[in-house]
């Protein structure tokens, strides 16, 4: 039911972990539904220079988390904000329909992390 790309990211997830002095942290999902993910970003000169994730969830939840970190790494904040749920699913060569809604939360987590970064930036100014 999962594409080879999903299984590859699930088996060898990229950028797992936390960033202790992260510039932005975003958590989305609900363990009640079986998915919860946190994304940490480190930003320098408006570019995401490091990104890590921690995820509780199914194969799709873990693979999308891994994929979104790979997609966002090295991108500007504006570019990263453009990454949609569909982009993540497409990069993974598709997700089973039942997983498209519930477990495809990684793009949302990235947005939440960027929002957090922007909020912190405003507070500093």
């Amino acid at each position: 039911m999962y594409s080879e790309k999903v299984m590859e990211h699930f088996s060898n997830p990229r950028n797992v972990g936390e960033i202790e002095d992260a510039d932005g942290v975003g958590t989305v999902g609900n363990p009640v539904c079986g998915d919860l993910m946190t994304i940490y970003i480190k930003v320098k000169d408006n570019i995401i220079e490091d990104i890590k994730f921690k995820t509780f969830g199914c194969g799709a939840a873990i693979a999308t988390s891994s994929m979104v970190t790979e997609m966002a790494m090295g991108k500007t904040i504006e570019e990263a904000l453009k990454i949609s749920r569909n982009d993540v699913a497409n990069e993974l060569e598709g997700l089973p329909p039942v997983k498209m809604h519930c477990s495809n939360l990684a793009a949302d987590a990235l947005k939440a992390a960027i929002d957090d970064y922007k909020k912190k930036l405003t507070a500093k100014e």
Partner: peptide, 8 residues
């Protein structure tokens, strides 16, 4: 567990 936010 190493990649789970809940286990931390």
């Amino acid at each position: 567990r190493k990649m789970s936010p809940l286990w931390c």
